[in-house]
């Protein structure tokens, strides 16, 4: 187990290093001389040389990369070209909003997807399965942005149940925060809920036909235990894989959802920085997104080995 973890951690670290190289090279590849841009009107050779010296632009590419990496890992992501605010502060402000939104969406989607998926599998052929399948198909087909706009139109503008946009920090007023977050989280979670539901249904149906489920019944266990423990635990292996693959979509979905609901999150920061050509911010945003993917994948791998003991041993020392 320890060897397996170590190997996976090594792989993740390698991917992270590759990500920094891509981000670094990407910015280098952009047209234009940064010294020229920084110098503004005073473009005499002395000023340019001074700027190059100050920002280390004369150093070799290797040295520049090293400086970039060490700064990044020390938490120095530079300053925004537009506002002059440290990029780190901008991200620290935006990240919690997105994390809360995604986490809430994930929780809602998992609960909804697992329950309806199990129901559809157990009540196979009945009206419940029809209903669950129909809702899942809708959830998959309807785009977030449209659903979001409709929700605003109906639930916010029409019925006045939820605020149409805006955000209250979680720590200052948790209730108001949730009130603002619920609708975006549900909208963001619908697609994922549908995917989880369909996957749960199919892997559950498979598990219910397995010999160990018959064994569980033959022991005299309650149907609730047979389905909810013996069959579910085995179906989760597949479901977790799919959820892991879908979390990437959740991140990109958050970008759209935050834009619609005016949430000052990471997605909004990304879009704003791209529109304003704010390179240091773009650079940081891309790197952090890449890191998020890597961390999520690592976490999913860990989760596998918790759910499925066979993986634990296959990669482990025993």
């Amino acid at each position: 187990m320890a060897a397996y973890l170590l190997r996976r951690a090594g792989q993740s670290l390698l991917t992270l290093v590759l990500a920094t190289i891509v981000v670094f090279a990407g910015v280098r590849a952009l047209p234009g001389d940064p010294a020229l841009a920084l110098a503004g009107e005073e473009r005499d050779a002395a000023t340019l040389a001074a700027i190059r010296a100050k920002y280390g632009l004369d150093d070799s590419v290797i040295e520049q990369y090293w400086a970039y990496v060490t700064n990044t890992f020390q938490g120095d992501l530079g300053r925004s070209i537009r506002t002059g605010i440290p990029v780190r502060d901008m991200i620290v402000g935006a990240l919690p909003v997105t994390l809360e939104l995604s986490l809430l969406a994930l929780v809602i989607a998992s609960i909804l997807g697992l329950l309806t998926g199990m129901l559809a599998a157990v009540r196979r052929g009945g009206p419940s399965e029809w209903l669950a399948n129909g809702i899942a198909l809708l959830g998959l087909s309807i785009p977030h942005f449209w659903l979001g706009l409709m929700a605003i139109l109906w639930l916010s503008v029409g019925l006045g149940l939820f605020p149409a946009s805006g955000h209250v920090p979680l720590l200052s007023d948790p209730v108001a925060n949730l009130h603002h977050m619920v609708m975006p989280a549900v909208i963001l979670g619908t697609g994922l809920a549908a995917v989880i539901m369909r996957q749960t249904r199919s892997s559950m149906l498979e598990a219910l036909g397995e010999d160990y489920v018959r064994t569980a019944r033959a022991k005299g266990l309650r149907e609730r235990q047979v389905v909810g423990v013996h069959a579910l635990r085995n179906s989760l292996i597949v479901v977790v894989t799919i959820v892991g693959l879908q979390l990437g979509n959740l991140i990109s979905g958050a970008v759209v959802t935050e834009q619609i609901f005016g949430l000052p999150g990471f997605g909004k920061l990304t879009i704003d920085s791209v529109f304003q050509r704010d390179y240091p911010v773009i650079q940081a945003v891309v790197l952090i997104t890449a890191t998020a993917y890597i961390v999520i994948n690592f976490a999913i791998d860990l989760l596998y080995s918790v759910i499925d003991p066979r993986i634990r041993v296959a990669g482990g020392a025993d």
Partner: peptide, 29 residues
């Protein structure tokens, strides 16, 4: 009734199946 049957299974009538490979749940000790 299903309830009665549940009390009978395992307690009065117990089963051993053909495939020991697949008849035990792989994810539990």
């Amino acid at each position: 009734s299903p309830r009665t049957l549940r009390h009978v299974r395992g307690k009065d009538v117990a089963y051993v199946f053909q495939e020991p490979m697949s008849s035990l749940n792989p994810v539990f000790t």
